[in-house]
Design a protein around this nucleic acid. Sequence first.
DNA 1: CCGATGACCAAAC
DNA 2: TGTTTGGCCATCG
Length: 105
Amino acid sequence: MDSFSQRIYALVRRVPAGKVATYGQLASLSGAPRSARAVGTVLAACRDPSVPCHRVVDRLGGVKPAFDTFAPGTQRALLESEGVTFTRAGRVDLAAHLWHPRDGG
DNA sequence: CCGATGACCAAAC
DNA sequence: TGTTTGGCCATCG
């Protein structure tokens, strides 16, 4: 397990149900604000069910179904099951579900 | 190590 | 809103 992916998973696990985080956000929190790309690559290789990778979306809330991790439509179904709402554009309402990392939260 | 690819992000048209 | 271009980092061959 590489330290990089380790940090990413650690952050994704910190994301509570009903909330979502963006790749850039996780990247920044992991200490690499420019490795948003790498975050996606790491999550794409995610094999740990303990990591709610379905709560990770792009900076616009758009979901990218990866056939290696989820079936087409599964990610959205999971988020909706947690209380996350979507817009007519098929994007997550980040204004209401964007995860805000807190120290005491 | 090098070359190609990708679940990204920001800027421009 | 959608397409195209440039930069970044990690993974795979």
